[in-house]
Protein backbone atom coordinates (compact mmCIF):
# COMPACT_ATOMS: atom_id res chain seq x y z
CA UNK A 1 0.00 0.00 0.00
CA UNK A 2 1.41 3.37 -0.92
CA UNK A 3 1.70 6.32 1.37
CA UNK A 4 -1.11 8.81 1.22
CA UNK A 5 -0.12 11.51 -1.24
CA UNK A 6 2.08 14.16 0.21
CA UNK A 7 3.78 16.92 -1.62
CA UNK A 8 7.27 15.66 -2.27
CA UNK A 9 8.86 18.16 0.08
CA UNK A 10 6.40 17.70 2.94
CA UNK A 11 7.89 15.37 5.54
CA UNK A 12 5.61 12.82 7.17
CA UNK A 13 6.46 14.28 10.55
CA UNK A 14 8.10 17.58 11.30
CA UNK A 15 9.07 18.65 14.81
CA UNK A 16 10.47 22.11 15.54
CA UNK A 17 11.86 23.17 18.91
CA UNK A 18 10.14 20.53 20.95
CA UNK A 19 10.49 21.09 24.67
CA UNK A 20 9.31 18.74 27.39
CA UNK A 21 9.35 19.88 30.98
CA UNK A 22 8.77 17.64 33.95
CA UNK A 23 7.89 18.74 37.45
CA UNK A 24 7.44 22.26 38.70
CA UNK A 25 9.27 24.90 40.65
CA UNK A 26 12.55 23.75 42.10
CA UNK A 27 11.94 20.22 40.82
CA UNK A 28 11.51 21.39 37.24
CA UNK A 29 13.54 19.40 34.77
CA UNK A 30 13.89 20.08 31.06
CA UNK A 31 13.77 16.54 29.67
CA UNK A 32 13.80 17.59 26.03
CA UNK A 33 15.39 20.87 25.03
CA UNK A 34 14.58 22.56 21.70
CA UNK A 35 14.67 19.38 19.68
CA UNK A 36 13.95 19.54 15.95
CA UNK A 37 13.80 16.72 13.46
CA UNK A 38 11.78 15.53 10.53
CA UNK A 39 11.19 12.19 8.93
CA UNK A 40 9.99 11.51 5.38
CA UNK A 41 7.57 8.85 4.21
CA UNK A 42 9.41 5.56 3.75
CA UNK A 43 12.35 6.74 5.83
CA UNK A 44 13.71 5.36 9.06
CA UNK A 45 15.01 7.89 11.52
CA UNK A 46 16.81 6.56 14.57
CA UNK A 47 16.89 8.56 17.78
CA UNK A 48 19.73 7.18 19.82
CA UNK A 49 20.86 7.92 23.36
CA UNK A 50 21.30 6.52 26.82
CA UNK A 51 18.93 6.48 29.77
CA UNK A 52 17.66 9.91 30.71
CA UNK A 53 18.65 11.54 27.42
CA UNK A 54 15.01 12.35 26.70
CA UNK A 55 14.42 10.00 23.79
CA UNK A 56 11.29 8.40 25.25
CA UNK A 57 9.99 11.77 26.37
CA UNK A 58 10.42 12.96 22.80
CA UNK A 59 8.11 10.20 21.57
CA UNK A 60 5.49 10.95 24.20
CA UNK A 61 5.82 14.67 23.51
CA UNK A 62 5.26 14.25 19.78
CA UNK A 63 2.16 12.16 20.41
CA UNK A 64 1.14 14.61 23.12
CA UNK A 65 0.72 11.67 25.48
CA UNK A 66 2.59 13.21 28.39
CA UNK A 67 1.00 12.85 31.81
CA UNK A 68 -0.75 16.21 31.98
CA UNK A 69 -0.29 17.09 35.63
CA UNK A 70 3.46 16.63 35.84
CA UNK A 71 4.70 17.28 32.30
CA UNK A 72 4.32 20.02 29.74
CA UNK A 73 5.33 20.13 26.11
CA UNK A 74 5.89 23.08 23.80
CA UNK A 75 6.94 23.30 20.20
CA UNK A 76 7.04 25.94 17.53
CA UNK A 77 5.92 23.40 14.94
CA UNK A 78 4.52 19.91 15.10
CA UNK A 79 3.02 18.71 11.86
CA UNK A 80 1.93 15.31 10.67
CA UNK A 81 1.91 15.64 6.90
CA UNK A 82 -0.34 18.66 6.41
CA UNK A 83 -1.97 18.43 9.83
CA UNK A 84 -0.92 20.85 12.52
CA UNK A 85 -0.94 18.73 15.67
CA UNK A 86 -0.54 21.75 17.93
CA UNK A 87 -3.90 23.22 16.93
CA UNK A 88 -5.91 20.03 17.43
CA UNK A 89 -8.29 19.50 20.31
CA UNK A 90 -7.61 16.53 22.61
CA UNK A 91 -10.53 14.71 20.98
CA UNK A 92 -9.21 15.30 17.46
CA UNK A 93 -5.77 14.17 18.60
CA UNK A 94 -7.19 11.02 20.10
CA UNK A 95 -8.83 10.20 16.77
CA UNK A 96 -5.52 10.72 15.00
CA UNK A 97 -3.48 8.50 17.30
CA UNK A 98 -3.58 4.90 16.26
CA UNK A 99 -4.92 6.03 12.88
CA UNK A 100 -2.39 8.31 11.19
CA UNK A 101 0.36 8.09 13.82
CA UNK A 102 0.99 5.07 16.03
CA UNK A 103 3.47 3.94 18.64
CA UNK A 104 4.90 0.70 19.98
CA UNK A 105 6.67 0.32 23.28
CA UNK A 106 9.55 -1.62 24.77
CA UNK A 107 7.50 -3.90 27.00
CA UNK A 108 4.44 -5.14 25.14
CA UNK A 109 3.03 -6.80 28.25
CA UNK A 110 2.31 -3.44 29.85
CA UNK A 111 0.75 -1.92 26.77
CA UNK A 112 -1.43 -4.89 25.85
CA UNK A 113 -4.59 -5.33 27.87
CA UNK A 114 -4.16 -8.62 29.77
CA UNK A 115 -7.86 -9.53 29.76
CA UNK A 116 -8.46 -9.10 26.04
CA UNK A 117 -7.75 -11.65 23.34
CA UNK A 118 -5.30 -10.89 20.57
CA UNK A 119 -8.26 -10.42 18.24
CA UNK A 120 -9.77 -7.73 20.45
CA UNK A 121 -6.42 -5.96 20.89
CA UNK A 122 -6.03 -5.60 17.14
CA UNK A 123 -9.62 -5.02 16.10
CA UNK A 124 -10.21 -2.42 18.80
CA UNK A 125 -8.29 0.19 16.81
CA UNK A 126 -9.93 -0.84 13.56
CA UNK A 127 -13.43 -0.69 14.94
CA UNK A 128 -12.86 2.67 16.57
CA UNK A 129 -11.07 4.37 13.68
CA UNK A 130 -12.47 2.53 10.68
CA UNK A 131 -15.94 1.57 11.94
CA UNK A 132 -15.38 -1.94 10.62
CA UNK A 133 -17.88 -4.66 11.45
CA UNK A 134 -16.85 -7.67 13.47
CA UNK A 135 -16.15 -10.06 10.61
CA UNK A 136 -14.40 -7.46 8.46
CA UNK A 137 -12.22 -6.47 11.41
CA UNK A 138 -11.44 -10.11 12.09
CA UNK A 139 -10.40 -10.71 8.51
CA UNK A 140 -8.18 -7.66 8.66
CA UNK A 141 -6.67 -8.84 11.95
CA UNK A 142 -5.79 -12.19 10.36
CA UNK A 143 -4.19 -10.39 7.45
CA UNK A 144 -2.14 -8.28 9.89
CA UNK A 145 -0.96 -11.31 11.84
CA UNK A 146 0.23 -12.78 8.55
CA UNK A 147 2.01 -9.52 7.81
CA UNK A 148 3.92 -9.66 11.10
CA UNK A 149 4.65 -13.36 10.40
CA UNK A 150 2.90 -14.91 13.35
CA UNK A 151 2.62 -18.65 12.71
CA UNK A 152 -0.85 -20.19 13.04
CA UNK A 153 -2.69 -16.84 13.17
CA UNK A 154 -6.23 -18.29 13.54
CA UNK A 155 -5.29 -19.88 16.84
CA UNK A 156 -3.36 -16.85 18.03
CA UNK A 157 -6.41 -14.62 17.60
CA UNK A 158 -8.13 -16.39 20.47
CA UNK A 159 -5.15 -16.27 22.83
CA UNK A 160 -4.46 -13.84 25.64
CA UNK A 161 -1.21 -11.85 25.99
CA UNK A 162 0.11 -14.03 28.84
CA UNK A 163 -0.06 -17.07 26.57
CA UNK A 164 2.37 -15.48 24.12
CA UNK A 165 6.13 -15.21 24.20
CA UNK A 166 7.82 -11.80 24.32
CA UNK A 167 8.50 -11.84 20.60
CA UNK A 168 4.93 -12.84 19.77
CA UNK A 169 3.56 -10.07 21.98
CA UNK A 170 5.73 -7.54 20.24
CA UNK A 171 4.41 -8.79 16.89
CA UNK A 172 0.85 -8.38 18.14
CA UNK A 173 1.71 -4.85 19.27
CA UNK A 174 3.10 -4.08 15.84
CA UNK A 175 0.05 -5.58 14.13
CA UNK A 176 -2.25 -3.43 16.25
CA UNK A 177 -0.12 -0.33 15.65
CA UNK A 178 -0.09 -0.64 11.86
CA UNK A 179 -3.71 -1.80 11.58
CA UNK A 180 -4.90 1.57 10.26
CA UNK A 181 -1.90 2.13 7.98
CA UNK A 182 -0.43 5.04 9.93
CA UNK A 183 1.80 7.53 8.13
CA UNK A 184 4.21 7.57 11.03
CA UNK A 185 5.15 4.75 13.38
CA UNK A 186 7.16 5.57 16.48
CA UNK A 187 8.90 2.53 17.98
CA UNK A 188 10.37 3.10 21.44
CA UNK A 189 13.07 0.48 22.13
CA UNK A 190 10.93 -2.18 20.40
CA UNK A 191 13.51 -4.96 20.71
CA UNK A 192 15.35 -4.11 23.93
CA UNK A 193 13.47 -6.69 25.99
CA UNK A 194 13.94 -9.41 23.38
CA UNK A 195 16.59 -12.01 22.71
CA UNK A 196 19.00 -11.26 19.92
CA UNK A 197 17.66 -13.93 17.52
CA UNK A 198 14.13 -12.62 18.05
CA UNK A 199 15.30 -9.02 17.77
CA UNK A 200 16.53 -9.73 14.27
CA UNK A 201 13.10 -11.12 13.33
CA UNK A 202 11.19 -8.18 14.78
CA UNK A 203 13.41 -5.59 13.10
CA UNK A 204 12.93 -7.43 9.83
CA UNK A 205 9.15 -7.28 10.26
CA UNK A 206 9.26 -3.57 11.06
CA UNK A 207 11.43 -2.73 8.07
CA UNK A 208 9.28 -4.84 5.74
CA UNK A 209 6.11 -3.14 6.89
CA UNK A 210 7.75 0.25 6.46
CA UNK A 211 8.80 -0.60 2.92
CA UNK A 212 5.42 -2.05 1.89
CA UNK A 213 3.33 0.72 3.38
CA UNK A 214 5.65 3.65 2.87
CA UNK A 215 5.45 4.56 6.53
CA UNK A 216 7.86 6.90 8.19
CA UNK A 217 9.53 5.01 11.04
CA UNK A 218 10.98 6.72 14.08
CA UNK A 219 13.09 4.14 15.90
CA UNK A 220 14.14 5.05 19.41
CA UNK A 221 17.00 2.91 20.68
CA UNK A 222 20.21 2.82 22.68
CA UNK A 223 21.78 0.16 20.45
CA UNK A 224 24.15 1.49 17.79
CA UNK A 225 24.09 -1.90 16.09
CA UNK A 226 20.34 -1.63 15.57
CA UNK A 227 20.82 1.93 14.29
CA UNK A 228 23.47 0.93 11.78
CA UNK A 229 21.40 -1.92 10.40
CA UNK A 230 18.04 -0.20 10.14
CA UNK A 231 18.15 3.58 9.88
CA UNK A 232 18.78 6.04 7.08
CA UNK A 233 19.30 9.00 9.37
CA UNK A 234 20.29 9.29 13.03
CA UNK A 235 19.68 11.85 15.73
CA UNK A 236 22.01 11.46 18.73
CA UNK A 237 20.62 12.84 21.98
CA UNK A 238 22.45 13.70 25.16
CA UNK A 239 20.91 15.26 28.26
CA UNK A 240 17.74 16.29 26.44
CA UNK A 241 19.45 17.89 23.46
CA UNK A 242 20.27 16.82 19.96
CA UNK A 243 24.06 16.75 19.83
CA UNK A 244 24.44 15.31 16.36
CA UNK A 245 22.40 14.42 13.30
CA UNK A 246 23.59 12.76 10.13
CA UNK A 247 22.90 10.14 7.53
CA UNK A 248 23.74 6.81 9.05
CA UNK A 249 26.81 6.17 6.90
CA UNK A 250 28.23 9.61 7.59
CA UNK A 251 27.65 9.26 11.30
CA UNK A 252 29.47 5.95 11.60
CA UNK A 253 32.23 6.92 9.18
CA UNK A 254 32.81 10.37 10.58
CA UNK A 255 31.21 11.11 13.95
CA UNK A 256 31.57 14.81 14.72
CA UNK A 257 30.51 14.93 18.34
CA UNK A 258 32.86 13.57 21.02
CA UNK A 259 29.92 11.86 22.70
CA UNK A 260 28.98 9.96 19.55
CA UNK A 261 32.59 9.02 19.08
CA UNK A 262 32.91 7.91 22.68
CA UNK A 263 29.74 5.85 22.47
CA UNK A 264 31.03 4.03 19.40
CA UNK A 265 34.42 3.48 20.93
CA UNK A 266 33.24 2.13 24.26
CA UNK A 267 31.08 -0.56 22.70
CA UNK A 268 32.81 -3.93 22.56
CA UNK A 269 32.42 -5.09 18.97
CA UNK A 270 31.82 -8.55 17.73
CA UNK A 271 34.90 -9.81 15.89
CA UNK A 272 37.28 -7.56 17.79
CA UNK A 273 39.23 -10.53 19.18
CA UNK A 274 40.24 -11.63 15.70
CA UNK A 275 43.16 -9.22 15.60
CA UNK A 276 46.58 -10.51 16.60
CA UNK A 277 47.35 -8.17 19.49
CA UNK A 278 46.53 -8.89 23.10
CA UNK A 279 43.11 -7.96 24.38
CA UNK A 280 43.22 -4.25 25.09
CA UNK A 281 41.20 -2.07 27.37
CA UNK A 282 37.97 -0.65 26.04
CA UNK A 283 38.21 3.09 25.45
CA UNK A 284 36.01 4.43 28.23
CA UNK A 285 34.11 7.64 28.66
CA UNK A 286 34.69 9.10 32.07
CA UNK A 287 31.84 9.95 34.40
CA UNK A 288 28.24 9.02 34.14
CA UNK A 289 25.05 9.97 32.33
CA UNK A 290 24.10 13.42 33.67
CA UNK A 291 21.24 14.01 36.05
CA UNK A 292 19.04 16.66 34.52
CA UNK A 293 17.98 18.44 37.68
CA UNK A 294 21.32 20.23 37.97
CA UNK A 295 21.80 21.83 34.57
CA UNK A 296 25.09 23.61 33.93
CA UNK A 297 25.41 26.63 31.64
CA UNK A 298 27.78 25.04 29.15
CA UNK A 299 27.75 21.88 27.06
CA UNK A 300 26.16 19.04 29.06
CA UNK A 301 28.86 16.66 27.86
CA UNK A 302 31.77 18.91 28.85
CA UNK A 303 32.42 17.25 32.26
CA UNK A 304 33.02 13.91 30.50
CA UNK A 305 34.75 15.27 27.42
CA UNK A 306 38.50 14.96 26.93
CA UNK A 307 38.52 17.83 24.46
CA UNK A 308 36.52 20.31 26.55
CA UNK A 309 38.00 23.76 27.05
CA UNK A 310 36.90 26.83 28.99
CA UNK A 311 34.26 27.84 26.47
CA UNK A 312 32.59 24.40 26.64
CA UNK A 313 31.78 24.78 30.32
CA UNK A 314 30.64 28.38 29.86
CA UNK A 315 28.46 28.40 26.76
CA UNK A 316 26.19 25.75 25.31
CA UNK A 317 27.32 25.03 21.74
CA UNK A 318 24.77 25.61 18.96
CA UNK A 319 24.06 23.02 16.28
CA UNK A 320 26.40 23.71 13.37
CA UNK A 321 25.80 22.36 9.89
CA UNK A 322 28.57 20.52 8.08
CA UNK A 323 28.37 18.90 4.66
CA UNK A 324 25.37 16.78 3.55
CA UNK A 325 22.99 17.68 6.34
CA UNK A 326 25.46 16.52 8.97
CA UNK A 327 25.02 18.72 12.06
CA UNK A 328 26.70 18.64 15.44
CA UNK A 329 26.55 20.76 18.58
CA UNK A 330 30.18 20.98 19.61
CA UNK A 331 32.64 23.87 19.90
CA UNK A 332 35.47 21.45 19.23
CA UNK A 333 33.98 19.54 16.31
CA UNK A 334 37.10 20.21 14.24
CA UNK A 335 39.35 19.00 17.04
CA UNK A 336 37.26 15.82 17.18
CA UNK A 337 38.17 15.01 13.60
CA UNK A 338 41.84 15.89 14.17
CA UNK A 339 42.00 13.81 17.34
CA UNK A 340 40.46 10.87 15.50
CA UNK A 341 42.95 11.09 12.67
CA UNK A 342 45.78 11.46 15.16
CA UNK A 343 44.76 8.20 16.78
CA UNK A 344 44.19 6.35 13.53
Amino acid sequence: MAARGHAADTPALRVRDLEVELGRGTRRVVAVDRLSFEVAAGETLAIVGESGCGKSMTALGVLRLLPGASARMRATELTLGEIDLLSLSPEELRRLRGDRIAMIFQEPMTSLNPVLTVERQITETLRVHRQLGRSAARARALELLHAVRIPDPERRLQQYPFELSGGMRQRVMIAAAVSCNPDVLIADEPTTALDVTVQAQILEVLLDLKRQRGMALVLITHDLGVVAQTAQRVVVMYAGRKVEEARVRDLFANPRHPYTRGLMGSMPRLGASQGDGPRGRLPEMAGTVPVLDRPAPGCAFAPRCALADARCTREAPPLVAFEDGHTAACWRADAVIEAAHGVD
Partner: peptide
Amino acid sequence: VPLPDPTKPRLTLAVEGE
Protein backbone atom coordinates in the same frame (compact mmCIF):
# COMPACT_ATOMS: atom_id res chain seq x y z
CA VAL B 1 23.84 -9.49 16.32
CA PRO B 2 23.36 -6.22 14.46
CA LEU B 3 26.81 -4.83 13.75
CA PRO B 4 27.39 -1.14 14.42
CA ASP B 5 28.61 -0.65 10.89
CA PRO B 6 26.21 0.44 8.15
CA THR B 7 28.55 -0.74 5.42
CA LYS B 8 28.25 -4.34 6.59
CA PRO B 9 25.44 -6.39 5.06
CA ARG B 10 21.96 -5.78 6.30
CA LEU B 11 20.43 -7.98 8.93
CA THR B 12 20.16 -11.53 7.77
CA LEU B 13 17.45 -13.63 9.27
CA ALA B 14 19.66 -16.26 10.82
CA VAL B 15 17.03 -18.37 12.49
CA GLU B 16 13.27 -18.59 12.60
CA GLY B 17 11.02 -18.90 15.62
CA GLU B 18 11.72 -18.52 19.29
